[in-house]
């Protein structure tokens, strides 16, 4: 394995034009990232379907409240900021991981988890507020599709945090091993992907909804 890496690096130095082809043969675990990317793409289709449902049903208020009556844009802005902050802090964790600094990686992962938890808390507050105001998922087709779409995203964030805590325990127990680095990279993709989906949510659901 080591000698292979060395010959590979030697090949690199001579500017082997077949770099990307030879590269693939060395580490079978390299396919994990591609596999995880394919999972994310299929997850993307789930969200696309829910967006389509919201796009179709989002104006059917059943004589109930409309988005402009319900949505609190400052709260959504804070929520968006939390998710964006958690994305950049996860980026910092990855940079420290690349340097092999365990403590800093763990600290930034913890900060990421806190931002994610604040995001979830604000979302749950919004949901409970809506349900108490009589605008629960059963009120209208608009609210059903709203709760399904935003709730699915919230569930993803919840599982992302569970995964984050699991990996923090793994890293603190076993260090930044190759396996843990690979897992952290998968979670990195998952976390940033959730932020991408949230861009769609705040643009299409909240901002367009309030715009009317």
């Amino acid at each position: 394995m080591i000698s292979k890496t060395r010959t590979h690096q030697a090949a690199l130095a001579t500017e082997n034009p077949e770099f990307y082809l030879t590269d693939k043969d060395h580490h079978p675990e390299g396919s994990t990232m591609l596999g995880f990317w394919l999972y994310l793409m299929s997850d993307c289709l789930i969200f696309a379907t829910l967006f389509a449902v919201y796009g179709v049903l989002g104006r059917n208020y059943a004589a109930g409240p409309s988005p402009a009556d319900l949505f609190d844009l400052p709260l959504v802005a804070v929520n968006t900021a939390m998710l964006l902050f958690s994305s950049i802090t996860y980026g910092f964790a990855m940079l420290w991981m690349a340097r092999g600094a365990k403590l800093q990686t763990l600290s930034w992962l913890a900060v990421t988890g806190v931002f994610g938890a604040i995001f979830l808390a604000l979302e749950l507050y919004e949901f409970s507020h809506l349900i108490h105001a009589g605008a629960g998922p059963q009120r209208s087709a608009f609210l059903s599709s709203f709760f399904t779409l935003v709730g699915t995203h919230g569930l993803h964030v919840t599982f992302g945090i569970v995964w984050l805590i699991t990996l923090m325990v793994q890293v603190s127990k076993y260090g930044l091993t190759q396996e843990n680095q690979r897992r952290l990279m998968c979670l990195s993709m998952f976390w940033h992907f959730l932020d991408v989906v949230w861009i769609g949510v705040f643009s299409f659901v909240y901002l367009m909804g309030v715009l009317g």
Partner: peptide, 23 residues
């Protein structure tokens, strides 16, 4: 693979601007 500090910061600043304008 892990990106760079500069890359993450560029992305972050652009995202903040691109979020703030529509809001």
């Amino acid at each position: 693979a892990h990106g760079s500090f500069k890359g993450y910061m560029t992305g972050f600043v652009l995202s903040v601007i691109l979020t703030a304008i529509p809001f």
